[in-house]
């Protein structure tokens, strides 16, 4: 197997792991969003590596990368909208205090 492909896939795996750690361990909404960004970044590396090393003649791979980049931007936009609403209502974006929907 190509070492370049493996390196890229391992980078994606590491970013995925770091992102999961961040999304689960942080109490601040903006920091949780940073974790999700890293998870999506891991997906991006994999997609670019699959396009480059396995199917460079098919541009559906690059198209998929553009869609994931769009999802990253949307996640930020909606996340910041929620953060503003939360900050206005409670004066904080700490997620440990967000227990209104708790059963």
């Amino acid at each position: 197997m190509s070492p370049d492909l493996l390196l890229a896939l391992f980078t994606g795996a590491a970013l995925f792991g770091v992102g999961i750690y961040g999304a689960l361990s942080q109490t601040n909404l903006v920091m949780i969003m940073m974790g999700v960004e890293l998870i999506l970044a891991g997906a991006l590396v994999n997609l670019v590596a699959f396009w480059r090393f396995l199917h460079p003649d098919s541009y559906a791979g690059q198209m998929f990368v553009l869609i994931v980049m769009t999802v990253m931007a949307l996640e930020m936009a909606v996340g910041f909208g929620v953060a503003i609403a939360r900050f206005r209502a409670r004066g904080s974006v700490e997620m440990e205090e967000a227990t209104e929907l708790q059963g």
């Binding site: 994606g12 795996a13 995925f16 792991g17 999961i20 961040g22 689960l24």
Partner: peptide
């Protein structure tokens, strides 16, 4: 601890 465990398991599984 749980987060580190989840992150390490996730990274190792994908690797």
């Amino acid at each position: 601890r749980l987060s580190i465990l989840a992150g390490v398991v996730g990274a190792l599984a994908t690797a």
